[in-house]
Structure formats: C-alpha cells, structure tokens
C-alpha cells in the first residue's frame, strides 16, 4: 500500500497544543440497558494511545453500542469511563471524532460539510482554509469541492466523512463499520486514510465484521459476544490462536449463536 501522509495529523497531545493527555481510555464495569434489558456488559476495556483497536463480533454483540458509549453518544447504565484518569468533559469530547457506517452528510457542498465541522470546533480563517484544502486533497475530492455532498458515490461520501473527521485532528477516531457497504477499491481508499492517520499518531477504534480488514488494520482485537468481551488480545495472537470458541467459529466462517 503506497504511503499517504496526512498534512495535519500530529501525534497525541501535541495536536491539542500540549494539553493534558486524554489516553489511555479505560472503561470499567461498563454496562448499557434498554427496554429493561441489559444490552451490554458489564465489560472492562482499555484503549492504549497510538494503537489500533478493532472490535469484532456477530450482529447484536454490542460493538456499535460500545463505540457509542466510549464516544459519549450514549450514557452507560453502569460503570465508568476514564480518559487518562479523568471523566469525560467537553474539552475531551472535542479531541475525538467519529465516522458512522452510513455517512451522515449535511445538505451542503463537499467543502460546506468540511467547513461546518471545522467551524464547530472553532477553527476559522487561514487555519480553516488550510485544513479544508488538505482534507479535500486527502480524500481525493478536490475536484468535487462545490458539488453537493449527497450526490457523491457511496465510497466518495465515506471518504469525505473520514476526511471531515480527520480534519478535526482527533487524538482518537472511532469508526463504526465505515466500509460495510463499499466495494474493494473504496475500502482500500478508506483503509489507506486510516493507516495514514495512525502513522500520524491518531488512536483508532474500529468496528468491523470483516476479518480481512481486521488483519490489515488491527494491533489489538476485542471480540464481543452477547454484550460481553470474550477475547481481548494482540491481533496476531487472535488470528493465529483464538482462545474463545465463539472467535474460533467466527474466524472459521461458522455461524456464531
């Protein structure tokens, strides 16, 4: 894979102007209930800085729920999430970004979407212009800057969503199956962006169903089943010697009940 250098991704706390570190991210006894039923947890999970953590598991295992709880889009029913020992606050939230399975693009042009995100984080003027141009180049969408974002192809829309997230210079990027409905070429382009972001120091937390993608991207694999973590190991170990029967079945292509 040819190397892609992101012009504005910097390592860890440096991106936040020397602010206090927010990683590791440690979830303890994390649980989520809905409709009077436990949907997730309790689970313990640690996201180390600079690592690529991939959440895997069958449908309904709680991968997306975990991601939303960590990012703060959902509030846990029980447990604690600590960012370098501190609870989440607005400043910590502004040092994260998330990409969704179905890109949520505003009814604006390509650059209008990027500008909105940058403005929301207080980035204006020359800095905004520079980041906008860099994001367009990164996503290979410079020629589409004035096009309505929702008229782009599925792959282009997701590239824009990833570029929009990366233009915020997040220290940690959450991605919920960003390539689930994309063809191999588009998947490769998204993965290239993620590799470059990781090389620039961004911590990645990715949900995927695709074992091939997990092999290509993961440093650590967290395997969930029925709302619980059944395995949390280095990627190489997970793929060579999965410890849990559920992970063994999943990797062998058998149906995991």
């Amino acid at each position: 894979m040819p190397e892609l250098a992101l012009p504005f991704v910097t390592t860890g706390a440096a991106a936040a102007g020397g602010a206090q570190a927010i990683l590791p991210l440690v979830a303890t006894g994390l649980a989520y209930d809905a409709g009077g039923q436990r949907r997730l947890g309790p689970l313990d999970l640690t996201i180390e800085p600079g690592r690529r953590t991939v959440l895997m598991g069958p449908n309904g295992s709680g991968k997306s729920l975990t991601l939303r709880l960590l990012h703060g889009l959902l509030q846990p029913g029980a447990g604690r999430i600590a960012w370098a020992g501190r609870p989440a606050d607005q400043a910590i939230a502004r040092r994260q970004a998330m990409v969704f399975q179905r890109p949520i693009l505003l009814r604006r042009s390509v650059q209008g979407n990027l500008r909105h995100a940058l403005q929301s984080r207080g980035i204006h003027g020359a800095a905004q212009t520079a980041r906008l141009a860099a994001a367009l180049a990164m996503a290979d969408l410079a020629g589409f800057a004035d096009q309505p974002a929702r008229r782009l192809s599925g792959g282009e829309q997701q590239r824009l969503a990833v570029a929009r997230a990366l233009s915020l210079q997040p220290e940690i990027l959450f991605l919920d199956e960003p390539t689930a409905s994309l063809d191999p070429q588009s998947t490769w382009q998204i993965e290239r962006l993620l590799q470059a972001a990781h090389a620039g120091g961004t911590t990645i937390v990715l949900v995927t169903h695709d074992p091939g993608q997990a092999r290509r991207l993961a440093d650590t694999v967290v395997f969930l089943h029925r709302g619980r973590i059944v395995e949390q190991t280095p990627a190489a170990q997970f793929f060579e010697q999965p410890a849990s029967p559920q992970a063994q079945d999943f990797l062998a292509g058998r149906i995991v009940l």
Partner: peptide
C-alpha cells in the same frame, strides 16, 4: 433525527444545532 449523532459527535451546542438544522 437524521443529523443527531453527527452533530453530537461534533460537540455542537443546542443553539448551534438549531442554526445548522434551520439552514439545512
């Protein structure tokens, strides 16, 4: 309902959310 998660992920205040929605 369509934008909610994206706008919350960006950390928009309710006022900024209203502005975005009114414009779009």
């Amino acid at each position: 309902a369509e934008y909610d998660e994206q706008l919350r992920s960006l950390g928009l205040t309710p006022l900024a959310t209203m502005r975005t929605l009114l414009w779009d």
